[in-house]
């Protein structure tokens, strides 16, 4: 068999599998563009016969979707900011300083990363109620930190450990303070790692469901995940095309990240998940 023929064969096989994997998502997009009649047809067509954006229009003007979206943006951005700042400083400490308890903290962080959320959810719920934070955006940012921070720390520690310590020492000798050397020399080196960490944290926060379900029960603070599920159950009959449009809109940030920043995402994977 010629190499060229082999390549064609393998490519066809791979691409048919990829289409199968992506199929449900393509079907989601197709459904969101179909008119109601087309959606509830017993003879479904793969592509919309008369593509329409009416569901998107309804979604953005007649539902709480824009509010949920805005909440999600605020929550995910705030979580990412808090987590990245804490994790960058913490990872610097874990990667570059010697002190008692350092290894214990590092192991505890790894353990946190494995802990099931359902174990934490009940006491966290009680804590938020007691602090008067139930039904606030802050409660979700705090809760999301619980699962995003351990991962971020682990990831950034791996990235920082990969940078040779000599360049920081050179900066110390050249007259920089410990933090000066960190900002001048180490931080620029781990910038790709910080981007990976930020993307991961953002996606985790954007997609989170359980904490949002338990901690927030008001439309003005509800994020997309629970918000869209509310739309599913609150309607008299389920408007699938509307839900598919919501799903598409909800996935837009991910599509952007995967399209333009995929390399950062994959790098984060390798560093944190596999080496850890």
């Amino acid at each position: 068999m010629s190499p060229r023929l082999a390549r064609t064969g393998w490519s066809l096989l791979a691409w048919s599998l990829i289409l199968l994997v992506a199929g449900p998502l393509l079907w989601m997009v197709a459904t969101s563009l179909k008119s109601e009649d087309e959606v509830f047809s017993l003879e479904p067509t793969l592509l919309p016969v008369e593509p329409t954006l009416e569901h998107y229009a309804v979604l953005l003007t007649e539902t709480a979707f824009p509010a949920y979206f805005a909440n999600s943006v605020v929550i995910a951005t705030a979580t990412t900011t808090v987590v990245v700042v804490l994790a960058v400083l913490g990872a610097f400490s874990l990667a570059r300083f010697r002190y008692r308890g350092r290894e214990a903290i590092a192991s505890a962080v790894l353990l946190c990363y494995m802990l099931p959320s359902v174990v934490l959810i009940i006491p966290l719920y009680l804590l938020m109620v007691r602090l008067g934070l139930a039904n606030t955006i802050a409660s979700l940012v705090i809760a999301y930190t619980s699962f995003a921070l351990p991962y971020a720390l682990w990831l950034l520690r791996t990235f920082m450990a990969a940078v040779p310590v000599e360049i920081e020492q050179a900066a110390l000798i050249d007259g920089a303070s410990r933090m000066g050397a960190f900002f001048d020399v180490l931080l620029p080196q781990v910038l790709p790692g910080i981007i990976s960490t930020a993307l991961f944290t953002f996606i985790l926060a954007w997609n989170e469901f359980l904490f949002a379900l338990v901690l927030v029960n008001a439309d003005d603070v509800r994020p997309l995940t629970t918000g869209v599920m509310t739309m599913l159950v609150s309607g008299f009959n389920i408007e699938w095309s509307l839900l598919m449009a919501a799903s598409v809109m909800m996935s837009v940030p991910l599509i952007i990240i995967l399209a333009f920043l995929q390399g950062h995402l994959v790098r984060g994977f390798g560093a944190g998940a596999v080496k850890g």
Binding site: G90, S93, Y99, I122, M179
Partner: peptide, 24 residues
Amino acid sequence: LGPLLIAPVVLVLGTVIAYPLFAA
């Protein structure tokens, strides 16, 4: 400096993980 930099992390993880774990 080392412990100082990790302190916020310990504080936050203590509040959102260690405390809930023992509380559970």
